[in-house]
Design a binder for these strands. Structure first.
Length: 596
DNA sequence: GCCGTTTTCGGCCCGACTGTTTTCAGTCG
């Protein structure tokens, strides 16, 4: 059973958590966290590196000690130092540090003072009034603990909200904040601005001539349930529904510095400030300082310029190589919604969609698209009334006739065909061959062992009509984990067989995720960003996919549906001819000119 | 525990806010 990078990263993170509670040197803790983060974004498998005798200390943040620990984990599946530590500190204490107001120090005191090692015990002790008696604790902290436990109960433990749900909250809140007297600027920062698929809280930045008015206006917003902090420059509230919103009021001359600082990510901010330190500059949310003198801060561009970097787009700010790319003058020219020329995945009311064929076509035209692929489910998916060969043949005729009537939009004859358990497709080649486009997806048997699931999909990719792998991991954020599949191998197989991977824009899917998008891009495999719309309105989901794609460093040239229909048609036909004629597997990505 | 334009030891990002304290520790982002 090979150990994956994510497992090594998880073990290092857990070790860091326990070390912190144990009171270890904070920089030692930080070293494990840094290593964990670096490992989880690595595009090479650590197991492979060790087997091939590569030097792990070449990796950032890894020296002899951690290289040894990685080797131990890869060879034995666990870390003995972590097992030892668990004997002195219960691992459940980690959960306690996630409660608002509690961190490692207080968790440790709760454990040694009252023997508390679980949320349940914590709640009981707080209700009985035992916590306020501990030194360093008091009545307010005790109440705050109870409040947070209750809030988590409502929200489900540690839940973050989908980006799309946060978007619904953000729009009216921003409009409301603009109404305050003296407001000169309002912007959302934080993970929302970086386009992260789920948002833990909202960070809003405001510039105003009347600071206290702005804070008053904010805290009296109709949706505010509770005010949890109220300072002169910062204020935090909990909205109905449980989402926390932090407001920061900043002066205009600091706006860029503040926006940069509060957009994060934390890792990116730290890396930027370290570059500042090396230049004897102090960078904080008020600006860039040389001694006591402020030398920049009105715009983000100014801040970057002071550490000799070009502007870096928010979606890239994760310290996953964007600073190094900026130094090489090699930042990606990120895709935008305007680059998208069509949608290659949609359904109609013939199967499980809600709009008619004509309605979908016209809605796509209205969005300025050149083409829309109607990709109904295939017969295996009975709950969705999937099409058999005869019904698909009828649909092909309907689309042909619709295309004769329509102007300015082309409907592609397509299918989202099921990949069966043995890796064959749910419809025969003789009908697939009549289509413009074939998406292949896994919709059942999610629980196959990793090896079998991976083989199943790779076998399907060798079918000459396989063009796009739909929602490659099947995950539903917060609802269903991805099926166990080796995505790195899928990307390699896509490269070999000339297949394209989908980035599905349904807000709870966003599958591929950002990290795998970048991996596909780095390996020269193209991505198709599709809405998977089941109604005309859902065509607008495309923008979620574009945001995720930007987080995955995708440029227009990496994305299939930035091509015009004639280009796309030529490429798909060419690719199919190569594959059907039995020649060596072609590579659509290379043919279309995807670089890198 | 890592790292090196302060290079093999000494530093490692920075400030606001709260609560529990009488000057600051802990948490948070």
């Amino acid at each position: 059973m090979p150990i994956y990078n994510s497992e090594v990263a998880r073990i290092f993170d857990e070790y860091a958590d326990l070390l912190e509670i144990h009171g270890a040197n904070e920089y030692r803790v930080r070293a494990y966290r840094t290593a964990s983060r670096n490992i989880s974004y690595l595009s090479h498998n650590l197991s492979d590196m060790i087997r091939q005798g590569e030097d792990l200390t070449k990796l950032p943040g890894i020296a002899d000690d951690l290289a040894g620990k990685i080797t131990e984990i890869v060879k034995t599946g666990h870390l003995s130092a972590l097992e030892e530590l668990k004997k002195t500190i219960p691992e459940e204490l980690i959960k306690i540090t996630r409660i608002a107001g509690l961190g490692p120090k207080r968790a440790y005191r709760l454990y040694y003072g009252l023997g508390i090692s679980s949320i349940r015990e914590l709640e009981k002790a707080a209700r009985e009034g035992n916590i306020k008696e501990l030194p360093g604790f008091g009545i307010k902290l005790e109440q705050a603990i109870l409040d947070d436990i209750e809030r988590r109960g409502k929200l489900r433990e540690g839940r973050r909200v989908l980006y799309s749900a946060a978007e619904e909250i953000v729009q009216p809140l921003l409009a409301y904040l603009w109404d305050a007297k003296g407001v000169k600027g309002v912007e959302v920062a934080g993970s929302y601005r970086r386009g992260v698929e789920t948002v833990g809280d909202l960070d809003i930045l405001i510039t105003s001539e009347k600071v206290s008015d702005a804070v008053d206006h904010f805290t009296s917003y109709d949706e505010v349930e509770r005010v949890i902090a109220r300072g002169t420059t910062r204020s935090s509230v909990i909205l109905r529904g449980g989402l926390q919103v932090d407001l920061r009021v900043v002066p205009e001359e600091s706006y860029g510095a503040a926006l940069h600082y509060f957009t994060g990510s934390k890792a990116h901010s730290i890396a930027i400030r370290k570059r500042g330190v090396r230049r004897r500059l102090k960078i904080n949310e008020y600006g860039v300082f040389k001694g006591d003198q402020m030398i920049a801060g009105r715009t983000e561009e100014e801040v970057y310029a002071r550490v000799d970097l070009p502007y870096i787009e928010p979606e890239l700010r994760e310290n996953r190589g964007e600073i190094e790319a900026a130094l090489r003058n090699n930042l990606p020219d990120l895709i935008t919604l305007n680059d998208i020329r069509g949608d290659l995945h949609s359904h109609t009311n013939l199967t499980d969609g809600h709009s008619s064929l004509e309605e979908m076509a016209l809605a796509a035209k209205k969005r300025g698209y050149e083409y829309l692929a109607i990709t109904e489910h295939s017969k295996r998916l009975t709950v969705a009334h999937g099409l058999n060969k005869a019904r698909l043949a009828e649909q092909i005729e309907r689309i042909d006739s619709l295309n004769n009537q329509l102007n300015g939009i082309i409907v592609l004859k397509s299918i989202e065909v099921d990949i069966l358990e043995d890796g064959s497709l749910d419809l025969p080649d003789d009908i697939l061959k009549k289509l413009d486009l074939v998406i292949c997806s896994v919709h059942h048997k999610f629980n196959l062992p990793r090896e079998k699931q991976t083989e199943r999909i790779i076998r399907a990719m060798h079918n000459p009509y396989f063009m796009i792998l739909g929602h490659p991991t099947g995950r539903m954020i917060d609802e269903r984990p991805p099926y166990d599949v080796d995505v790195e191998r899928l990307i390699k197989a896509a490269k070999e067989t000339g297949c394209i991977l989908e980035l599905n824009s349904q807000p709870e899917r966003l599958d591929l995720d950002d990290i795998y998008c970048k991996m596909a891009r780095d390996m020269g495999v193209m991505v198709a960003i599709n809405s998977d719309a089941h109604s005309t309105q859902e065509l607008d989901f495309m923008h979620y996919g574009v945001i995720q794609g930007r987080r995955g460093w995708l440029e227009p040239k990496n994305v299939l549906n930035t091509r015009s229909w004639p280009e796309l048609k030529k490429l798909l036909q060419k690719s199919r001819k190569t594959l059907v004629s039995g020649a060596a597997p072609g590579n659509i990505s290379e043919k279309i000119g995807a670089k890198r």
